[in-house]
Design a protein around this nucleic acid. Structure first.
Length: 114
DNA sequence: AATTTGACCATAA
DNA sequence: GTTATGGCCAAAT
């Protein structure tokens, strides 16, 4: 009954990630919330790790951590730099600290309106 | 089937 | 400012 959403948890995360508009970024926590997994910021990170390589339609590079910084990791095989490059390509400018001003690029805007 | 793994966030000291 | 800790979950091997 109610086959409302028997979709894999990860797929919902991917769906939420695809909704991030170009030139904008969302945090893991936000994506988790949009995916219907409030508080599961970690799952988002886990899911994205499994998808990053065969990248298809998922703008995984638009997902960053709550600090407004790209989550670098040794296990990422350098995909973290690809993320940096892609964000720059979309017109996003990093601060001197290598961070992204969420107040400007954060999405959805409603979470960052002053 | 059990073990391993993995890109977070918030709080406390 | 850093460091440590708890919480949370699913997929790949």
């Amino acid at each position: 009954m109610a086959a409302i959403s028997i979709a894999p948890a990860y797929e919902r995360i991917y769906a939420a990630t695809r909704q991030i508009p170009t030139g904008r970024v969302a945090t893991y926590g936000t994506v988790a919330h949009l995916a219907g997994l409030p508080g599961q910021a970690r799952l988002v990170g886990y899911a994205l790790f499994r998808v990053a390589l065969p990248d298809t339609e998922i703008p995984w590079h638009r997902v960053i951590n709550a600090k407004g910084e790209i989550s670098r990791a040794p296990s990422r095989h350098g995909s973290d730099w690809v993320q940096q490059a892609r964000l720059l390509t979309e017109g996003i400018v990093f601060t001197a600290d290598g961070k992204i001003p969420l107040a400007v690029y954060g999405w959805p805007r409603s979470l960052y309106l002053k």
